[in-house]
Design a protein around this nucleic acid. Structure first.
Lengths: 248, 248
DNA sequence: TGCGCACTTTGCGCCAGCGCAAAAAGCAGC
DNA sequence: GCTGCTTTTTGCGCTGGCGCAAAGTGCGCA
């Protein structure tokens, strides 16, 4: 389905189309194709020929990579305004990951040809894309470093903080991860197993740092997580719900 | 030092300046600054304000990232023609890694302003940069996946194969890694310790797959490494030097 | 030719985190 | 409220790979 005028605002919000003037935005829109996806549907599959560049308008996407053995790891979360599959700009490439909708999602996309054409006419788009990619690159470098040098507990703490940043919603209880996140998901994101994640979360729950349920995590005391992530000397014990463990 | 005409050929070779016409190349050159570095010198340091984009003309660079604890990991190798620190295009960023010369190196660089200006005038440059970044992104994703899902031995095998691809020189003995690579370096690249690397290489040496010395690695039987990297059922034993272990 | 340094090997002990199995707890649909 | 499915917890055993110490080796330099 071709994009309508209603999508113009969305396009203007996207990182990759920042700082474009209205005529430019209009021509971007003219080439856009919009599509809806339901929970669990795939926007594209890893290893398929990369032909379109996507921008997420609404909802969230999960990026998955399959290992040769069939195991699956979570390469990241896409929030509205982000572009994915920029690799499609190059000829004869394949998608390096699969993109799957979490909940329902609205996605805009452009063919390689069209976006290439738009970029030539409006280099700012290419610069924006470069910007976005660079940022993501840095994030990857950090994850890589964490993975090679840090213990599991720290990695999980960081993973949770990252999630909170990307999909956290403040409530009076604390920061709620506004997504169904299973222990398995967290394990994939941090390079460990669901067992270890489960044990670690339970431990944090006892300490009052978080409060976790089935595919639901509430961070009650974010600073506690930061402490673990940065390996600081444990600060004040968190404001626990329970009356007084230490005084009994 | 400002670039001279002699650098034009180098510039034309760089991935980021592919497919430019001669006038464009000339203006690129007009803004370039060339600099030489000796073994071990740093082109830039992590966390310094990112102000220039670099293209390696000759030699090799090592990208290093420091952990908060002071440990250091090897984030990659830069070969001639590659661009680094593209992040500098954005305002107010800092270099996410340090870049250090291996042997002597010739580096061209452009200021944020100038390169930005060049890209606006010639969008192809931005597209090329996007291309280069995308490729590197995929490599990072792969490393990330390997790190979370694969055993140490496989990671070392892959690391070695990657090195061979980037800096391998064919000889009649096999593929020689044309760089001083210590066990420590390999350990940083693959997320393990120099002890484990040492043990693993010794083992491979016994099997005749490689032949290693002080900061020197010769891959005698690349297929053996591939076998390990892909976890295939061990193929023919390698054509060992030693007369006949199995028949004695 | 010999010294000193940096890199490498090897032995030994240990434990963080994995892997599995089985039980428990949520959740959804009927 | 019951049934069945998915997610989560927990116990237990195990081992890959780390960490350290000490000895060995190759290389550059005087």
């Amino acid at each position: 389905m071709t994009a309508h005028a209603e999508h113009l605002a969305v396009i203007a919000q996207a990182d990759i189309f920042h700082n474009l003037d209205t005529p430019a935005l209009r021509s971007v829109m003219a080439y856009a194709v919009a599509a809806h996806y339901q929970e669990g549907e795939f926007v594209f599959y890893q290893d398929d020929p990369a032909e379109r560049v996507y921008v997420l308008a609404e909802g969230r996407l999960r990026l998955l990579q399959l290992t040769p053995e069939g195991a699956q790891i979570n390469m990241g979360l896409v929030s509205p305004g982000q572009a994915i599959a920029v690799i499609s700009l190059l000829e004869a490439q394949r998608y390096p990951v699969s993109a799957q909708a979490i909940g329902s999602a609205l996605v805009l996309s452009w063919s390689r040809r069209d976006l290439h054409h738009l970029m030539i006419g409006c280099p700012q788009i290419a610069l924006n894309a470069l910007q976005e990619l660079s940022q993501r690159m840095i994030e990857f470098q950090d994850r890589l470093r964490e993975l090679t040098t840090e213990r599991v507990e720290r990695r999980i703490a960081r993973g949770l903080l990252r999630l909170a940043r990307q999909a956290g919603r403040k409530t009076e209880q604390g920061v709620l991860i506004d997504l169904p996140v299973s222990r398995q998901d967290l394990a994939e994101m941090t390079g460990t197993t669901l067992f270890t994640v489960s044990r670690t979360l339970s431990q944090w729950e006892e300490r009052g740092i978080i409060s976790a349920g089935r595919e639901r995590i509430l961070i009650r005391f974010p600073h506690g997580l930061v402490t673990i992530a940065e390996d600081l000397p444990a600060p004040h014990p968190p404001p626990s719900e329970k009356p007084s463990d230490s005084q009994v």
